[in-house]
Amino acid sequence: MTAKQHAPATQRNRDPIAAVLAQELPDSGTVLEIAAGTGEHAIAFAQRFAGLEWIATDPSPDALASIAAYRDESALPNLRAPLMLDAASPDRWPIENADAIVCINMVHIAPREATLGLFRGAAQLLGRGQPLILYGPFIERDIVTAPSNLEFDSSLKLRNAAWGLRDAEALDILGVQHKMARSARHALPANNIMLVYRKD
């Protein structure tokens, strides 16, 4: 039995995500990935961005075991050991600073407290001009939401009433409250987008 888990969507979305990350990430420094899940994105991005130290985090012991198994197999020198981190927890995050924070497909599959904690933690760790990068489906007030995303939103709320697609403009307000402003919006396949917030 292996601890490695597999998320089929990772194979489909990692290249489009990486193309945006290439525009938004610094050339060097430390990237903190929040809610890294299986660890497959961490492997792909640590391979692609060899000048960056990549730290994957997750609140799930099973996810952390999967990340560690992929890390051991890959032996990538810039992929550090995974860290336990629950963005919804009020506890202080396990590192003191980062040069960028990446969060893929968490905001809609987590209670609102996780998003609040994400912005709070980013405000503490990031320096001026450094990015918080979010990927996933969002509701945008001036853009018609795709029927598939509305169906997805309904299915999430049936699974857990605290889940669901978040309003991008509400995230903008949350960013301002934490001295971060949205600097970019990137449209990606399958009605997903990437939102980039940078510290003032």
Rank of each mutant, 00 (worst) to 15 (best):
A42P: 04
I43N: 01
I43A: 05
I43S: 08
I43L: 12
A44P: 04
A46D: 14
A46R: 08
A46P: 09
R48F: 10
F49K: 14
F49Y: 12
F49G: 11
A50H: 02
A50I: 06
G51S: 09
L52K: 06
E53R: 13
W54I: 07
W54S: 01
I55Y: 00
A56K: 05
T57E: 03
D58F: 01
P59V: 01
S60F: 05
S60A: 09
S60I: 00
P61M: 08
A63L: 06
L64K: 02
L64W: 06
L64T: 01
A65F: 02
A65P: 04
A65N: 10
S66P: 05
S66Q: 07
S66Y: 08
S66K: 06
I67F: 11
A68N: 12
A69V: 00
Y70L: 14
R71Q: 15
R71V: 13
R71K: 14
D72A: 15
D72M: 09
D72V: 06
E73C: 06
S74P: 05
S74R: 14
L76H: 10
P77K: 11
L79C: 12
R80Y: 03
R80Q: 15
A81R: 00
A81C: 02
P82K: 07
P82S: 04
L83V: 00
L85K: 00
D86Q: 08
D86V: 09
